[in-house]
């Protein structure tokens, strides 16, 4: 089977400059991620993993190096083209969920489709489908303030999936939720991965990282270890979840 490349990062550096000093957050990093991989990027705080995540998410541009996401060269694009890439190719899952407050979960999940120009009639159908998939089909009209942290993160997963992106990019997805709910989130990730989704997850928790099939360690802006074929810890499967 010929593997398709989802992410191709070569010689990427990111240097933050202030008037006083320069900080090298990423130092000549290169790696590729194939489609269908579930990768955990690990490292202590200050290691550069967040910077790496921002660059992978097209939220920030590298100082030098090239980044090809799903066949498109990202670092040359304009702001609006980047917005389009984020919309179509990347599904974000943030540590702080970042849902719109006082807004129903259905509307939250429909938001990326509005920016992606999906026809109005289709938006609700799709949003509903993905919310049912994460087990929230009976709470479509709850607002985000009315549900638990774990449920909010599941809404965020549904939101990340609606544009059928090339990659799910999760930044400390379990950092703000209880461990039982973290288990649920990992179970959803593994189910999605089994169905062929590419997932890149940033975390500093080894327990969480062990759910992935590949673990990349980052320290001082450099990759120190790239553990392919990691035997994943299987999360307790939720019966109602299906893709």
């Amino acid at each position: 089977m010929k593997k398709q490349i989802a992410i191709d990062v070569s010689h990427i550096s990111k240097i933050y400059k202030t008037e006083v000093m320069e900080t090298v957050a990423l130092d000549d990093v290169s790696f590729t991620i194939d489609k269908g991989e579930f990768v955990a990027i690990m490292g202590p705080s200050g290691s550069g993993k967040s910077t790496l995540m921002h660059i992978l998410g097209a939220l920030d541009k590298p100082t030098s190096g090239t980044y090809i996401l799903d066949g498109e060269n990202v670092e040359k694009l304009s702001d609006d083209e980047l917005a389009d890439i984020r919309n179509r190719k990347i599904g974000f899952i943030f540590q702080a969920f970042n849902l719109l407050p006082r807004t129903t979960i259905l509307q939250n999940v429909m938001l990326p489709m509005r920016y992606g120009g999906v026809p109005v009639e289709e938006r609700k159908v799709r949003a509903q489908k993905y919310l049912e998939m994460v087990g929230l089909g009976n709470r479509l009209n709850h607002t985000t303030n009315q549900i638990s942290g774990g449920q909010q993160q599941r809404v965020a997963i549904a939101r990340a999936l609606v544009m059928t992106p090339a990659m799910l990019l999760a930044d400390e997805p379990t950092g703000n939720i209880a461990s039982a709910q973290a288990e649920e989130v990992m179970s959803i990730f593994q189910t999605l991965n089994d169905a062929g989704h590419t997932i890149v997850m940033i975390t500093h928790e080894p327990d969480i990282a062990y759910h992935a099939k590949r673990i990349i360690h980052v320290r001082d802006g450099k990759i120190t270890e790239d553990l392919k074929n990691h035997v994943r810890t299987v999360a307790k499967k939720l019966t109602h979840l299906e893709t």
Partner: peptide, 16 residues
């Protein structure tokens, strides 16, 4: 501002 950041992350263009 955070909301604007989120909307941009989800693919909203500046003009929108």
């Amino acid at each position: 501002t955070r909301e604007i950041g989120l909307r941009k992350a989800l693919g909203a263009k500046k003009r929108i």
